[in-house]
Amino acid sequence: MKKSRIPQTIAPERFRRGSFTVSAEGSIVVSTLPADFSREKMEGIGRVVLSALSSARELGTPFTELAADYAGLEIRARDLAGGAIVFLTPGEY
């Protein structure tokens, strides 16, 4: 395989599309993400998502959907009875 001569630009990591479900306790229930996407990363995402959703509920503003828009990734989560289903979509940058 020939090496690309195109100069590399500094860019966020490339992500692959997929989703996972996190329980209200923060454990990963099921995932369609590739195996190289670590469980720790999924748990990290789940923790932040659940924390944002539960703290908003405590303020009397429940959210059913939450999205974080990064330059290289979109994290979109949907509330599932205290847990969440999280979709990861590579961003356009």
């Binding site: 860019a11 966020p12 990591e13 992500f15 990363k41 990290g44 995402i45 932040v48 924390s51 944002a52 908003a56 009397g60 503003t61 429940p62 959210f63 059913t64 959907e65 939450l66 999205a67 974080a68 828009d69 990064y70 330059a71 290289g72 990734l73 994290i75 961003g91 940058y93």
Partner: peptide, 23 residues
């Protein structure tokens, strides 16, 4: 928290956090 998560994931700068609900 989302900024720190972005750094962990190397997802690039956080542009926005959006949320929608019944209220």
């Amino acid at each position: 928290e989302f900024r720190e998560l972005g750094e962990l994931l190397k997802a690039g700068p956080l542009r926005a956090v959006e949320a929608a609900g019944p209220v």
